[in-house]
Amino acid sequence: MQETAALHVEDLTVAYNSRPVLWDVDLTIPEGVLAAIIGPNGAGKSTLIKAVLGLIPRAAGTVSFYGKPYQKARELIGYVPQRGSVDWDFPTTVLDVVMMGCYGKLGWIKRPGQRERKMALEALEHVGIADLAHRQISQLSGGQQQRTFLARALVQDAQIYFMDEPFAAVDAVTERAIIALLRELRSRNKTVIVVHHDLQTVTEYFDYIALLNVEIIASGPTTEVFTADNLRLTYGGRVSFMEDRQVVLAGGD
């Protein structure tokens, strides 16, 4: 089981200024699922992704992708950072950003050429913004920015994707386009791990979830794990279930 798991995390602990933000996280995510990491604000969802990808130092723990450590699995990994993490006033075009997706495979010094350009254009076609290829990135709407990032991830052609809040503040049309794309990735047996915070859509979108609040509260198939008790444990009693499995978050954010 552990050898074939897309992601296997063991005893992961991360601390900021000696305050633990992730505590002893064990997590196994099987291949070919759409998985969500869910939890309240400050639960360490983004931190978990970043620690797994080696972007922030770990105090303890090991991580493997398809049974391999990060250094050996690098080419298998695709990443969609939070939209707000970059400066969208950077002087460049959509096509250029999407082409950055192939920089990793190109390696040091080698320049992207016609082949990479074609790949990028295809990815843009795929996410439905081919007509924006030469648009300045500062002129994109929020949804278009997100699609640009997704196109860049497609160009990475990874086996396992990590996406940090891809649904945050996008319009309904973009949200549907994104979920369609994620499902398509899953049908090609890719694994997609998403930081998500909209509890309403969890059961509809994801077949595997991890409930996180500094520690892992529960993880497994959505049908087994997405229960009122688990949610209450994660969100601390601020959640109430309504009859048709609609979830209501009480008392603000």
């Binding site: 972007l55 690098r74 950072p81 920089y103 990793g104």
Partner: peptide, 10 residues
């Protein structure tokens, strides 16, 4: 442009 993306790409 994107420091973290660069790091993830090795």
């Amino acid at each position: 442009f994107d420091y973290e993306f660069a790091a993830v790409n090795g």
